[in-house]
Design a protein around this nucleic acid. Structure first.
Length: 306
DNA sequence: AAGACGAAAGTGGTTGA
DNA sequence: TCAACAACTTTCGTCTT
């Protein structure tokens, strides 16, 4: 268990440890700060009503994959209204009407969106924790009005993509695109927008995270796989990886590794599963050979073959 | 004939003035 | 806001197996 010093959502250092529940809570935004990323049943206190009986919850844990979790605020209770007259009073009614409209709109939107999210998530076979995270992100996005001017689906896809990245189970934009039916560009755009607006920090994705999945769909042996990861590690040290697309690097490492183990796959095959072109693989491949002195190894295995 | 290689031109996104 | 820039793609011709 490591302790987080700053709230990942709002950056506040005003954290509060609730020993009874064993949770660390951000006092500013109400986020339950996770010690690991995989954490179920987070809750935003902020959005709860003040009812004390609601604070003690029983029953099923609250989850962001359900659309209604006590969202929204009611403006103006009866008592306040009697103190207002004329213009002020009208203003109050107007505000209340809008508040009502907005909150019901949010609920409707969430209901639809979360259904969509579940669909996409399950077609990508994503773990439940990622789905939760995505739902959380989406909920936040809706509340901040970030969906305006964007299609609901694209924001869902963006949220899912972000959630995948945070949980280090990366899917490529292509996969998300296929599963959601949203254009790659669009997902990327909303993804960037949403994460920036919400101040979500995303670690640059690690090429090694892709290896297992790519290797699997290429039916490569476990040795080849771990060799590829080794190559990746070396590549990181020589700073071959910074700035490049992680999928390209992963693909190249896998390609080299397959060659070394006599499990040759064509560049085309590798390129397809990694969602990059052969050219990119070639470039990365070339760089890998140069910087890591792998030429001899390749030649050796070639001779062996003969 | 298929795969590997490389050059050249084009695309979308980031950065810095 | 615009131009320069890097990474990546597309396309195509040539070489290798």
């Amino acid at each position: 268990m490591h302790f987080v010093k700053k709230c990942p959502e709002c950056g506040s250092i005003n954290l509060f440890l609730n020993k009874d529940k064993g949770e660390v809570i951000c006092k500013d935004c109400g986020l339950v700060v996770e010690d690991k990323m995989v954490e179920f049943g987070q809750e935003w206190r902020e959005f709860d009503s003040d009812d004390s009986n609601k604070l003690r919850r029983t029953g099923a844990p609250m989850t962001y994959t359900q659309y209604d979790q006590g969202l929204g605020t009611e403006i103006g209770q009866k008592a306040d209204l009697f103190r207002l007259e004329g213009k002020d009073r009208n203003k109050f009614f107007r505000l209340r009407k809008w508040q009502y409209r907005i909150s019901t709109a949010i609920e409707r939107n969430l209901k639809l969106a979360l259904a969509e999210l579940k669909g996409v998530s399950s077609s990508l076979k994503l773990p439940k924790s990622v789905e939760e995270e995505a739902a959380r992100i989406y909920t936040l996005a809706v509340q901040r009005g970030l969906v305006r001017g964007r299609s609901m689906e694209s924001v869902v896809a963006g949220a899912l993509y972000a959630a995948c990245r945070r949980h280090e189970v990366p899917r490529t934009l292509d996969e998300l695109s296929e599963a959601s039916g949203i254009e790659k560009k669009e997902i990327g755009r909303t993804y960037r927008f949403v994460t920036r607006e919400l101040g979500i920090t995303i670690l640059p994705s690690n090429p090694a995270d892709y290896i297992a999945r790519f290797a699997c769909s290429l039916t490569l042996s476990a040795e080849t796989q771990s060799r590829a990861v080794e190559i990746l590690e070396k590549a990181q040290k020589v700073e071959l990886t910074s700035g490049r697309g992680p999928t390209g690097i992963a693909a190249a490492a896998l390609y080299v590794s397959a060659l070394l183990h006599g499990e040759k796959r064509t560049q085309r095959e590798v390129a397809d599963v990694a969602g990059v072109t052969e050219v990119t693989i070639r470039n990365r491949y070339k760089e890998l050979l140069e910087k890591l002195n792998l030429e001899k190894d390749i030649k050796k295995t070639k001779k062996k073959r003969k």
